[in-house]
Amino acid sequence: MPYFEFLETYGGRFLEGSLITVVQFVLATIVSVVVALSFGLMRMSSNLAVKSFATVYIEIFRGTSLLVQLFWIFFVLPLFGITLDKFTAGFIAVGMNMGAYGAELVRGAILAVPKGQWEAAKAINMTPAQRMRRIILPQAFVIMLPPWGNLVIEIMKGTALVALISVTDLMFEARQINISTFLSVQTFGTALIIYYVFARFLITPFMRFFERSMARKIGRA
C-alpha cells in the first residue's frame, strides 16, 4: 500500500490518538506541577514528619519505574477500594511520577535563590509565607523553567505508557493499526514522527518562549 493511501485510511485514527495523547499530556503536566510544588516545598519544611513524608514519596517514585507505578495504581489500588478508570489512572500515574522528579527541581531552584533575598525579605518584616510567595517563588520559578523544559518532554513521552492500560492514545492506535495491517514501518514511523513534531516544534519552542517572557517579567531578560 502506498504511504499516501495508508495515511488516507488511517490518518483519522492517528489524529484521534494524538488528541488523547495531548489531553493526557496536559492533565499529567498539571498533576506533576501540583505534586512538584507541594512535595518540593514539603521537602524543605522544618517539620520532620512533613519532610520525611515528602522524602519517602520522592524516593519511592524516583526509585521505581513509571510502568510499575502505573500498573500498581491501575491494578492494585482497586483492591484497597480506590478504583480509577484507565484514563484517570493514566495521567495520575504519569503526573505523580514526573512530579517527584519535578519536586527536586523545585527544591534546587528555591535553594538557588540568593541568600540576600531571603535576608532582605526578613529585614522588611515579611512573614515566611509572604516571603515565599512574593520574593522567593517568583525567582525560583524563573530559575527552574529551563530544566522543566526537559521534564515536560519526559512527561509527554511518559504518556505513551498509558497505552498499556488500554487508554486509546497515539501509541495504542499505532499498535492496533500495526496488528491489522502489518505495515510496521509506516505505522510506527508515522507515530514516531507525530511525537517528534509535537515535542520539538510545539512543546520546546513554547517552553523557550515561556522562559524568556517570565525572565523578562522579573526583569532578567
Partner: peptide, 17 residues
C-alpha cells in the same frame, strides 16, 4: 524526544517486514 516504548515496538516489528 520520542517515547522509548514506541522505539521498542519499532525495532521489534520493522525487522520482519
Amino acid at each position: 524526544s520520542t517515547p522509548l516504548l514506541l522505539q521498542v515496538f519499532f525495532v521489534f516489528y520493522v525487522g520482519p517486514q
